[in-house]
Design a protein around this nucleic acid. Structure first.
Length: 482
RNA sequence: GCCCCCAUCGUCCAGCGGCCUAGGACUCCGCCCUUUCAAGGCGGCAACGGGGAUUCGAAUUCCCCUGGGGGCACCA
């Protein structure tokens, strides 16, 4: 039997890094085992679900390069893969369970339940509801006819115990005294997560449930429900959760955790996916940077780490730099032109484009985030440079700067062919004649043309800038030096 | 409170009874290269939470403690 796995996000929020990692592990498992990847929408919470979140999840999945064989948008043999479209099915399962005696109408009030839980807690026993307020099912029909709206609860066999072999954790066991008679159908006859999710897993033939560890203690419920439906439970693999830098569960408090926020911050999907994969799995042979297709070859669900992992942006940033450097140069140019036009909110002139194209390879080498490119190349696109205060103070107030700028202006003006080679030759000749070092001789020119002590390589920058602009900027800086 | 999971450098991962004076990557710090900044090269700092037990021998097995995480809803 070929594996069938699913990623089943709830459209009550953006796709965040934790969810994306779960999706990725499901995807890697499917692709490495010749299995089927299914994308489902667990949207039974009408209140909190929104179309915007649903769209964000799809967009983010696609952006990351994670596709699916069946599911929302793509369809498949099981019809609609959104739970909101399958409500009748869940009701039918719940009703049949009541008929078969595996579930019961519950009229227990919230007050009763609260009181019971408080007492249990105080007594040091498990606060799991065991049906004690619903012993009498005989008049359930009458009460319903009279207008009461009960929930339907699953009857957990007690005493009892559910034990299963988790693929990443090994044997896990829960005593049924810890498992409450959980609600499967609410009083408004909408299904709870436990019901909808389990029914779908059974109906869709899911063989492996790969999900977050937060669902580990709900697993007995899902196994019990599956068995009550007369089906064989899937294999379960519970992934440890992702934490913030403070060791706490990753949340909005740690800043943006949405995948789309990383896209906007200038990360490459390849880098994000690579980094996420390494959070809890190691491909062996000290491999760190490896593309999705190579991960597929090496992926092994049983080798996934049990430790919770901290989402650490330092390493992600480094990896992003690696992927940027590995990018196809032409693709890099396209990316930066698009992103800079978006920043400037205007189309680039032909001259701007030419300058960017010339500079691109040198920028590509020193970029960690796509979003920082704008600053690096700003000097190529403005009419007049703005001088960074610290840079000016550091180099332009030194003695001899005026002479250096004068000499540079003079010699650069005399160049016949304005290219890197002659620019370098000229300026090196200048510092030799002036008997000064490269640092002392070149930094004033750098600040004059770029506004900062930090810039892409000098000779290449001058070439890209063009003779006129270069000379103009050297003159202006010279006049400001006094 | 009850239950479940986890425990190696600051972080992510190797290690699955002797090969460990614990390895790699990120970060950080030096040095080299160098026109700045990066990149790259070389080097360095840095960890088996504690206590028992098993064993000739434990990072590796078992138990307890401690610590961290998760769950205990008519949310998912």
């Amino acid at each position: 039997m070929t594996p069938r796995v699913r990623f089943a996000p709830s459209p009550t929020g953006f796709l965040h890094v934790g969810g994306a990692r779960t999706a990725l592990y499901n995807w890697l498992f499917a692709r490495s085992s010749g299995g089927t990847m299914i994308l489902r929408s667990d949207d039974t919470d009408e209140e909190r679900s929104t179309p915007e979140y649903a769209a964000d999840i799809l967009d983010s999945m696609r952006w990351l390069g994670l596709d699916w064989d069946e599911g929302i948008d793509t369809g498949g043999p099981h019809g609609d893969y959104r739970q909101s479209a399958r409500l009748e099915r869940y009701r039918a399962v719940a009703d049949r369970l009541v008929e078969a005696g595996g579930a019961y109408y519950s009229f227990a009030t919230p007050e009763q339940l609260d009181a019971f839980r408080d007492e249990a807690r105080a007594a040091g026993t498990a606060p799991s509801y065991d049906g004690r307020f619903d012993v009498d099912q005989a008049d359930a029909v009458k009460r319903i006819a009279a207008g009461e709206r009960p929930t339907i609860r699953f009857q957990v066999p007690r005493p009892g115990r559910t034990t299963f072999e988790d693929i990443v954790r090994g044997e896990v066991s829960f005593d049924h005294s810890q498992v409450d008679d959980f609600v499967i159908l609410r009083s408004d006859r909408t299904p709870t997560y436990h019901l909808a999710s389990t029914v779908d897993d059974v109906d869709f033939g899911i063989t492996h449930v790969v999900r977050g560890e937060d669902l580990l203690s709900s697993t007995p419920k899902h196994i019990l429900l599956t068995e009550a439906m007369g089906a064989d439970p899937a294999r379960y693999a519970h992934l440890s959760l992702l934490m913030g830098p403070d060791g706490k569960k990753l949340s909005k408090r740690h800043g943006h955790t949405a995948i789309s926020a990383y896209r906007d911050a200038g990360y490459l999907p390849e880098a994000l996916v690579n980094y996420l994969a390494l959070l809890g799995w190691n491909p062996g042979e000290d491999a760190t940077v490896l593309p999705l297709n190579e991960m597929v070859d090496r992926f092994d669900l049983t080798a996934v780490s049990k430790n919770p992992a901290i989402f650490d942006t330092d390493k992600l940033e480094w990896m992003n730099g690696v992927y940027i450097r590995e990018m196809d140069p032409a693709e890099f140019v396209n990316q930066i032109i698009a992103s800079i036009e978006a920043d400037l909110a205007r189309p680039l002139t032909d001259g701007d484009r030419a300058r960017l194209v010339a500079m691109a390879p040198h920028v590509q080498e020193r970029t960690k985030l796509l979003t920082e490119i704008g600053d690096q190349v700003a000097f190529l696109l403005v009419d007049e440079v703005e001088f960074d205060e610290a840079s000016w103070a550091k180099v332009m107030t030194k003695p001899g700067v005026a002479d250096i700028l004068d000499a540079a202006g003079e010699r650069l003006a005399a160049i016949d062919d304005w290219d890197v080679r002659s620019i370098e030759e000229t300026l090196r000749g200048m510092i030799a004649d002036l008997e000064i070092g490269a640092g002392k001789g070149f930094q004033p020119i750098r600040v004059a043309v770029s506004g900062s002590t930090v810039s892409p390589p000098l000779f290449e920058s001058l070439e890209a800038l063009g003779r006129e602009t270069t000379l103009e900027r050297v003159r202006r800086a010279r006049s400001l030096v006094g």
